[in-house]
Nucleic acid binder design. Structure first.
Lengths: 202, 202
DNA sequence: GTCTATATCCGGATAGAC
DNA sequence: GTCTATCCGGATATAGAC
């Protein structure tokens, strides 16, 4: 393992530790010292990799964990039931299981950051908006398996994402998965209703 | 105006300023010095009213702004269209207007706090969970005007609240109201579909 | 009840040895 | 690339004059 490769590892560990801590405590509630400790390095090393300081690290966390979570959800949907409506419902059940298994910590990796920075830090706000936008592109493509109309599919995708995000808020606060399961049932009813009125021609 | 009454005013101003700042910056991102400045008082005075320090103040903010927002939403629904399904949809339009009018700052008053404290501060987590629970009670009662079945009404209420919370996250991040409007359309479709299958006998 | 002053600690950030 | 040491500001919190 070359020194350059070790450096890359350290950088990745810093991003991973920051992502994990941000997800549970938010950005403002997480200090660089804690990130350094959790990743087994020093604050000085963080500044070696992220000349822009905490803001630069946070932006990278948003982008990398946003991409990772988008891929995770896409994989779950792809491996789920063949009927896309059922697959959407099953994904909420899977999200509920994962959330409970993590002690109600691992929900959306960027939602807390998004709310914290929305009115306080324009570059980070843009980064979160772009991640949500990319997720919506993928979800809309999936929803076109339910309704062929592009605009209706995007509406459905947006509704699905809002229900997932909102259910994460309620479920983490309540420390139970009823909100996620109720949202999953709602998604199935909504998607079915849209499929009935805007039949997909496949 | 008696001194006791003035004291009450100061206390109220502190809670109001903290609520406003928390809504935009979150709890961890807001300092007591800023709250004191915004409410025209001193940090020492905050400790005079809140012996428990920032945690005690934060809990009061959660409970009072939670109650206020619950009453606001109830009023909007009561004054909206007579058809409860249309009233739900209209409420999302109203939320979109209010959010944009406030520069995308005034969304849910406790969502940011809820995500910040969910895994870090058990008493505050409970406080946010209780507020969400009270909102759900009121929303479920309203939804019984759509579907008579108690369990279905609660499912619908939960779905509506998740869509509102999630749409607030997406709309604040994007600084546009498309998510709120899409969620509003989704709520109307979902509520209509449930009304059709579980007809309310009124 | 309100204000000043301050204690104590932790935040982000930096310089420079190695 | 990594580590130590440190600066400086802001954080919560407290003591006590008025």
């Amino acid at each position: 393992m070359s020194p350059a490769r070790r450096g890359q590892d350290t950088r990745d560990r810093v991003v991973g530790a920051a992502a994990s801590l941000y997800r549970r405590q938010g950005c403002a509630g997480t200090g660089l010292a804690q990130i350094a400790q959790e990743s087994g390095t020093r604050v000085g090393s963080i500044y070696h990799f992220f000349g822009g300081g905490k803001d630069a690290l946070t932006e990278e966390v948003v982008r990398t964990s946003g991409a990772a979570y988008g891929a995770l959800v896409a994989g779950i949907l792809a491996e789920g039931p063949e009927d896309p409506v059922e697959a959407l419902g099953a994904a909420f059940g899977r999200a509920a299981d994962d959330l409970a298994a993590s002690g109600y910590a691992d929900a959306c990796p960027i939602a807390t950051i998004a709310l914290e920075v929305a009115s306080t830090h324009e570059p980070l706000r843009r980064a979160t908006a772009e991640v949500f936008g990319e997720w919506l592109v993928g979800l809309t493509a999936f929803c076109r398996g339910v309704v062929d109309d592009e605009a209706v599919a995007r509406d459905l995708a947006t509704a699905v994402l809002t229900m997932l995000e909102g259910a994460f808020v309620l479920s983490r606060a309540a420390r139970d998965t009823t909100a996620l399961h109720a949202a999953g049932r709602g998604v199935v009813v909504l998607a079915s209703a849209l499929r009935d009125t805007h039949a997909a021609q496949d």
